[in-house]
Simulated assay, not measured.
Amino acid sequence: MLSLNEIKKPIAAEIDVFEERFKASMQSSVPLLDRITHYIVKRKGKQIRPMFVFFAASLCGGITEATHRGAALVELLHTATLVHDDVVDNSYQRRGFFSINALWKNKIAVLVGDFLLAKGMDLSLANNDFQLLRIVNEAVKQMSEGELLQIEKVRRMDVGEPVYYEVIRQKTASLIASCCASGAASAGADENAVERMRLFGEKIGIAFQIKDDMFDFGTDDVGKPLGIDIKEKKITLPLIYALNNAKSAERKRIINLVKNHNDEAAKIAEIIAFVQSAGGLQYAESQMKKYQDEAFEILNTFTAGEARTGLEQLVRYTTERNK
Rank of each mutant, 00 (worst) to 15 (best):
L2P: 10
A12N: 11
F18D: 03
K23T: 08
Y39H: 11
K44M: 07
G45L: 07
K46T: 06
Q47R: 11
F55R: 02
S58N: 15
G62V: 12
E65D: 14
T67A: 12
R69K: 10
A71S: 11
L76G: 14
H78A: 06
D86V: 08
V88F: 09
R94A: 01
F98M: 14
N106S: 14
L111D: 13
D114Y: 13
L116D: 12
L125G: 05
F130M: 15
L132P: 07
R134I: 05
V136I: 12
V136N: 03
E138W: 02
E138P: 04
A139C: 04
S144M: 09
E152I: 02
E152A: 08
V154I: 13
R156Y: 10
D158Y: 12
G160V: 05
Y165F: 15
T172M: 08
I176E: 06
S182M: 07
A187D: 09
G188S: 14
M197A: 08
R198C: 06
R198M: 07
F200G: 05
K203M: 14
K203P: 00
I204R: 02
I204D: 03
K211S: 00
D212H: 14
G218R: 01
T219M: 06
K224R: 13
I228W: 00
A242W: 02
L243A: 00
L243M: 00
N244C: 07
A246V: 04
R251W: 07
R253A: 13
I255G: 01
N260L: 01
A265Q: 10
A265F: 11
A269Y: 03
I271N: 02
I272A: 02
V275T: 01
Y283T: 01
A284D: 07
E285C: 02
Y291W: 08
E294C: 01
I298N: 02
T303E: 10
T309D: 06
G310A: 01
Q313H: 15
L314G: 04
R316L: 14
